[in-house]
Nucleic acid binder design. Structure first.
Lengths: 179, 179, 179, 179
DNA sequence: TATGAATGAGGGTTCATTCAT
DNA sequence: CATGAATGAACCCTCATTCAT
């Protein structure tokens, strides 16, 4: 019944399926069963809808990241990996939308803040773990760890049709278990 | 003098800077100093321009990939890594455009063939190397190797502002030298 | 005040004067004192405007046809003739547009349904009259009766500059009075 | 091998199938296997191609009309009817094109002369026959005779799907045999 | 909150025509 | 007689946004 949320949901699906630029406000209105006026009552612009979706996702990420704060450093790292794969399987729609928006210069511009926030949150928590394990070059290692995760997401969501996600996950876990 | 190439060059730059959807044919014409009619004389549509750029890039990739065909399996792998970083530094514009087009559902659709071709070429040549080195799970390892490269490209091109590309490169090379 | 009707009126006049293909949406907008967006808010396409005009005309024809339902068969036939000439004199604009659209293959295609409907309505009502008068070959006679009317319209609207419409009408009436 | 004639033939077919406005010069060139430059070497404009087609048809009509110059007035009239039906069956393509061009205001304008010439030729020869038979109101009768023929053409070419052309022809012949 | 008529700039594309070769 | 690259105006249509109700 919450019409604002209906709009967000409809927009999320459409942005993910067709891309942000190719989704019109009219389509969002139809899909959300809502008038144009109402959408502009809740959001100042089409961009703002995307921004809202983005900031919601960032918020979720923060929670996940902080929720993995217990246990030994190694366990925390493994937890991050598992959370990552869990989200990858669960939220294809949102993730695809995020990739789309990040690589579209026009959208990227006004999402910059969120993108930076996300990457530094992830980077900091990973680096902190590597530091606790007392690994040298923790910074470079963190970048590489993140690159691996991002690369897997990219391969799974947008490159290979039959991606052996389970195999990859196990391989990755065993690799980092032996740090 | 070759106006068709002027169009391709102008389009490549603009698509990369502003994204495919946000670049208008008028802008391409202005940038290439060419009339609209001429563009449509050489290309059937805006999509076809992007497709031409994509297929040209694929062709280059093939050449690079086959050019690394000599030496021991390990050396071939290191060569691939080095080629990859070389291209990453040299051709930021084209690579960004490729990422943009791959994550835009509308463009992705008609580029599917090229995307598939590229990924299978890379996958096959990497897997062949791992097989020659006689590593177990060569398929999974290939996927992970590709994920690492893609992830680095993604981080460098679109996530982190100050990415220590040289450090990453060295770390990666030393990691695979000890296979 | 009713802007949709303004559009229809402007389009009817322009289509009739310049032909459907040679009338641009911009011209219709100017003539109707309305923005492009508004036209596309009410109609899905330029074709749809023409279709609306056509279906309105068909509706009128039906009413006229059924309005002549009283009296003896012969009187009904004479009534049809008189209605026909009345419309010919009154609605040159619309009729010319109808001829134009019927002979343009591109428009004809999507108006087919309306054209068929009209011709069968007229044919059926004429044939019914001839059957009541108990004439042999009523079907062929109906076709010929319709051909005469259509041919007169064609001559008057698009062939001869000084067409003696009154003479023709009287001649036709006297011809059928003696059936 | 005569390329000019190839152009005329291709244009005739295309104009008839798609309508004059909807046929592009490029299409004509493709269909005639000829370059744009060549077409503009032979014709000054697209309009001129249509005009050439029209004047050729007019010439044919004149020949047919004068060829029926022998025999009694009544036989001449019957001959006209027979010629008319013969052409109707033989040359659907050209006739449809003629109707299309006559009802398109833009084309009509520059074909006016030809249209007038044709109609007056037909009118004069019919009126002359009626005068020879010594019928009153020969002028009005001529108009009505022409209207009947035109109306039949219209019905056959563009209104009814299954038009009993033979029946109509016989009916018409028997009608005028008893003048 | 909620509607949908209304705007107008700009989108991709088409096309008759010209002209250097 | 023959080609096809090149032009540029015009075309139909889309769309984010505004605003009176």
């Amino acid at each position: 019944m919450n019409k604002k949320q209906q709009v967000i949901n409809a927009a999320t699906t459409l942005f993910s399926e067709k891309g942000f630029e190719k989704t019109s406000m009219s389509e969002i209105c139809s899909a959300a069963n809502v008038s144009k006026g109402l959408v502009y009552h809740h959001f100042q612009s089409k961009n703002e809808i995307l921004e809202k979706i983005f900031s919601d996702t960032t918020e979720q990420m923060k929670n996940i990241s902080s929720a993995s704060g217990d246990g030994s450093p190694l366990n925390q790292l493994l937890k991050i990996i598992e959370n990552f794969f869990a989200q990858l399987e669960k939220d294809v729609v949102t993730l695809r939308l995020n990739l789309n928006a990040m690589f579209q210069p026009s959208t990227r511009e006004f999402l910059q803040t969120h993108i930076n926030e996300r990457s530094s949150i992830l980077f900091e928590s990973v680096k902190k773990i590597f530091d606790q394990i007392d690994l040298p070059r923790s910074s470079t290692l963190s970048f590489m760890f993140i690159a691996e995760l991002d690369g897997i997401a990219l391969s799974y969501l947008s490159v290979f049709d039959d991606y052996p996600l389970q195999d990859i996950k196990e391989q990755l876990l065993s690799k980092y278990q032996n740090l």
